[in-house]
């Protein structure tokens, strides 16, 4: 299946749904790793929205990106509860272990506030991280 066909299939799966835009964009982001200008235009046409409206939504939410980044992404929680458990000191550790190979992103709360520092890699979550455990996690990403 080529990209255009895959995009059409995603759009068709959500057509007619009330408030379809966010679920549709989630699927586009998941399949293509980003929401490219061409996809924005196709989604806008399918949902009878202006291109500006779709772009406005894409640019508003942190989960949607305009460009794909093929690297694995480790989300390190930087919110207050993880700060209280020493997460800030781990940022440099994560970045050193990651180099250019892994993307280290901040996330504000994974709901693991009693067992931080916490991180998410894909849909797997990790807690009670110290420097060694975090570096190992980044290396395995």
């Amino acid at each position: 299946m080529n990209d255009a066909t895959r995009l059409d299939a995603i759009i068709a799966a959500h057509a007619g749904r009330e408030g379809a835009l966010l679920p549709l964009l989630h699927d586009v982001q998941a399949v293509f790793g980003c929401i490219a200008p061409a996809a924005e235009a196709a989604v806008a046409a399918a949902l009878n929205l202006s291109r500006a409206e779709v772009h406005g939504v894409v640019s508003f939410y942190h989960d949607f990106t305009a460009q794909a980044d093929p690297r694995p992404c480790l989300q390190l929680c930087r919110a207050e509860a993880c700060q209280a458990r020493g997460a800030e000191a781990l940022v440099a550790v994560a970045e050193a272990a990651a180099g250019d190979r892994v993307r280290i992103a901040a996330v504000f709360c994974l709901g693991l506030c009693s067992v931080g520092p916490a991180a998410r890699l894909g849909d797997a979550v990790h807690a009670r991280l110290d420097a060694a455990a975090l570096a190992a996690l980044v290396d395995a990403a």
């Binding site: 408030g19 679920p23 989630h26 949902l47 508003f60 939410y61 942190h62």
Partner: peptide, 21 residues
């Protein structure tokens, strides 16, 4: 419905806008 990383969507009217797309 799954949010998309915006903290402010916990505010009820922002949340409604988000569901509406």
């Amino acid at each position: 419905r799954v949010g998309a990383g915006a903290y402010v969507c916990g505010e009820e009217t922002a949340l409604l806008n988000s569901i509406e797309g």
